[in-house]
Nucleic acid binder design. Structure first.
Lengths: 244, 244
DNA sequence: ACAAAAGTGTTGGTGTTACACCCATGG
DNA sequence: CCATGGGTGTAACACCAACACTTTTGT
């Protein structure tokens, strides 16, 4: 932690901060192969009626990550998710205007990035939370600099998917290889890899175990259900692992 | 930017923050093949006489990155450097104790990570700045949670070196391939790659141009001086590029 | 029988590793 | 002439993209 020093303080005015957390919450709608982001429609100035990232001020005694979890819990009910810190933005004079705190107080926003399981993510309806899933490709102009943050989060999502097994945080306990493939396609685009090669590569990693159970998805040959094997993955942790 | 809402405020106390910036500043001593980090010895409580990362409070009207640059400029004079944001830490009750501001005010630390050119980094000597380069492998117990931050920065440095050309921000304008190799060895360890292969791979990227000038480093055949070609690199920007 | 989905195999090309070897210079 | 460091080449192997092919189901 830094320290200014008492003598310094007399010469230079330190800024007082209000700290907020903004979440970029993604989910993959596997039915329709769409990547979604959770947004809330603002109900007051500034940027009234614009979409924005769900955010909150940090409360006393609350860690940043707790704060992020709290916003999430206010908007959706979800069990399985992946959450990590994204970036911290704080330009001078970026405090939300019209706020009762804006006088002489500066604003700092720590953004978090999350991926949640769409099928189990139940939107919480209330007056407070008026949230909705929007298709990432069609997101309109957002409030504040939230488009920038969203773009940043989207880049991080793609990287994470390629280099770490966050997909399995968000897939059902047992899944078919095609479901994994669909998820990757939705996030990374159709042409990132062909199915056979993706399959072979994924299996060669040795972190999935075949449950032996077969399942039918409409017509076609039944697929094996696989399970993510955390134990086999453990030694690969922190290694530069490429999935695609 | 997040917003709490006036009704929320009455129910929950928001935290007031003082924001500091802490820098993890690395340099590579190519003469002795040592990776160094810039630390300052604390001159007041808490953790008096302990080494710590150079840090400062953020002043009014100052962006976070400016703040990071300012600390750097207070400790060393340097022209060439690479700087990026690292991570934001803020647990409740982590405010530097004995500080005149600690009552009711919470602390948040945004850390930055920098790599500077050692040969031109001139330490600024004064009572305020009592900074020194320490060998990363031999860093003792630091003040606060600075060991954690340093560890995090070290990890980032290794990743950056593998995936982006930050080495050339910190090498002289013209350099031999062996100088690049030494830098990589110092940061990543001796056994990351053998010289021939490193060489071949680096040249195949097509981002270095041979100046034709030869230079003698003691005995042995003279080496070519190369220059980083920013234009050739431009199209590779944002691509997942592997150097080792 | 046929379409659809799951899963296997082949092939040419490219990248990586671990070396051996040649070149130019100082002492 | 030999030690030293710079620089080139190569054989064995692993990996990868593209695509053809087989298997098992629903209709």
């Amino acid at each position: 932690m830094a320290e200014g020093g008492t003598n310094r303080v007399k010469k230079y005015a330190l800024a007082d901060f209000q700290v907020g957390v903004d979440n970029v919450i993604f989910s993959v709608d596997t039915k329709n192969n769409r990547l979604l982001v959770l947004l809330v429609k603002r109900k007051k100035e500034p940027f009234i009626d614009r979409w924005s990232l769900p955010g909150t001020f940090v409360r006393q005694g609350e860690s940043l990550e707790n704060s992020a979890q709290r916003i999430l819990a206010e908007k959706i009910r979800v069990k399985n998710l992946y959450l990590e810190q994204l970036y911290t933005f704080s330009e001078p004079n970026c405090h939300p205007r019209e706020s009762p705190y804006s006088f002489g107080v500066r604003y700092l926003s720590v953004s978090y990035f999350a991926l949640v399981r769409f099928e189990e993510a139940e939107l919480i309806a209330s007056e407070e939370s008026n949230a909705a899933w929007l298709v990432v490709k069609k997101v309109p102009q957002l409030a504040f600099d939230h488009n920038k943050i969203l773009e940043y989060g989207y880049r991080r999502l793609r990287n994470k998917l390629e280099y770490s097994p966050i997909a399995f945080d968000v897939l059902p306990d047992k899944f078919t290889l095609n479901e994994v493939y669909q998820l990757y396609c939705t996030v990374l685009g159709e042409n990132f890899s062909d199915y056979s090669n993706f399959r072979a590569k994924l299996l060669k990693l040795g972190i999935l175990s075949d449950t032996g159970v077969k399942v039918c998805r409409g017509a076609g040959r039944p697929a094996s259900l696989y399970r993510f094997d955390a134990e086999s993955f453990a030694p690969l942790k922190d290694k530069p692992l490429v999935f695609i």
